[in-house]
Amino acid sequence: MARKKRAASAPEVDLLADVAVRASRDAQGVPADLLEGYLDDLDEVSVTGRQPGPDRLRVRREAGARAAVQGVSLRGVVDLHLSATWLAWSSLSGVRRASGADGVRTAGEAVFKAADAAVMAVAEGYESAQRWSVRQEESFRREFVDDLLDGRNLGQLAERAERFGLRLAGSNVVAAVRTASPVVDGGEVARAVETSLDLRLGSRDVLVTTKDGLLVCVAPEAMATVPDEFTRQVAAVLGADDPWLVGLGRAQSGPGGVVRSFEQARYALDIAERLRLPGRLHRAADLLVYQVLLRDSAALADLVSVVLEPLRGARGGAEPLLDTLSAFFTSGQNATACARGLHLGVRTVTYRLQRVKELTGYSVDDPAQALSLQVAVLGARLLGWPGPA
């Protein structure tokens, strides 16, 4: 059965109302209405000794939640309640009516125990509201990021972007990191890179987030140093041994520009992985030639088949000879550098190149034939030829 509250007399009400105003001043202006019911509770406890029940503590938790929503600090709302407690002490009915030191001590123990429970309830309500606010903000941010990088709801993106410090009217570039393990939103890698980049740049104009297991950075084109700094911070977090790559899209303008740059960044990652390109940072602008090659994938597949198909008949299959050709062209057609990159002897490299000539009829020493071989090797990597053994 719910406990009936004792009705305070008019003089007591005036005293307690005055205490609320003074407590608000003492707590640097924290609204007095956050004390709603608190002083009455203390007054009743001082007389009866009975501690506030669940209903009264729920009111205190609600007061803590309101304080969080109103932007009052936790310290401020706790200060308000503690100030109200000591300011109200001499005005509480049970204290004024107490006879002797034992009566005052009994009332004091009950009042301050109730105050302790009330402050704990206020803190619980405040922290619960804060957690809810954080979860809601994370949900808004995740929804915004998904729309931004998927190209949805473009008409509303510019307005929503301002909340996260982005200006979509100008040109932006997107960098994306792919690692051996997917990067998760709010995970250790994402948090560490975002924090370190924020400390380095001190700008709200840069967004670090995740998408489809990739770590993503969106930055204004005018902040030209961001991609390199982003790469350095990724390197600091992941280290040199982790097989990670960064793809960088081209600068694109408008709300839809971010998703275009993001797609280019992902394309750069795909090309870099297929071709096993050296280095960590791969710019889509430098890889346009491969996009041209893939536009006519049927013709590219024909070239690969005509030029390289005979390599399947080599001892050990086509892959070792294909790797040698790829390294040879990557090293500027320098057999010594090619051998060093493959950790082979120069004689092994020259032998393999000779085998390619014998099997295909194409020689790396003939400029025209070498070009056909190089384009065919690129096509093989892009198309996944020769496939599983």
Rank of each mutant, 00 (worst) to 15 (best):
M1H: 12
A2V: 14
S9G: 08
A10I: 07
V13T: 10
L16G: 02
D18M: 08
A20K: 02
G29E: 05
V30I: 05
D33T: 12
E44F: 02
T48D: 06
R50K: 14
Q51G: 07
L57V: 06
V59E: 14
R60E: 07
R61C: 05
G64S: 04
A67K: 03
Q70Y: 07
S73M: 03
L74N: 00
L80G: 03
L80M: 01
H81L: 00
S83P: 01
L87R: 13
S90Q: 11
L92C: 01
S93F: 06
V95S: 08
R97C: 13
S99E: 15
D102C: 12
V104W: 12
G108A: 14
V111L: 09
K113V: 11
A114G: 14
A115F: 10
R131M: 14
W132Y: 13
E137Q: 13
R141C: 13
R142P: 13
V145E: 14
D147N: 14
L148P: 02
G151D: 07
L154V: 15
A158R: 15
R160D: 08
E162R: 15
R163F: 11
S171N: 13
S171D: 11
A175Q: 02
A176E: 00
T179C: 13
P182I: 06
V183Y: 02
G186E: 04
E188A: 07
R191Q: 01
A192N: 01
A192H: 00
A192E: 02
T195R: 00
D198Y: 10
L199T: 01
S203G: 00
R204G: 09
R204H: 09
V206S: 01
L207K: 07
T210G: 09
V216Y: 04
A222C: 07
A222F: 11
T225E: 12
V226H: 06
P227V: 09
P227I: 06
D228V: 05
T231S: 12
V234N: 08
A236S: 08
V237H: 04
D242Q: 12
V246C: 00
G247F: 00
S253G: 13
G254R: 03
G254E: 03
S261D: 00
L269A: 06
E273A: 07
R280D: 11
V292M: 13
V292Q: 15
D296E: 14
A298P: 04
V307R: 06
E309D: 14
L311G: 10
A314K: 06
G317L: 11
A318N: 08
A327W: 11
F328A: 12
F328M: 11
N334T: 10
N334R: 12
A337M: 10
R340N: 11
R340L: 11
L344T: 05
T350V: 07
T350Q: 09
R352M: 03
R355W: 04
G361P: 02
G361R: 02
S363T: 06
D366A: 09
V375Y: 05
R381W: 01
R381F: 04
L382Q: 00
P386S: 07
P388W: 09
A389Q: 15
A389D: 15
A389W: 15
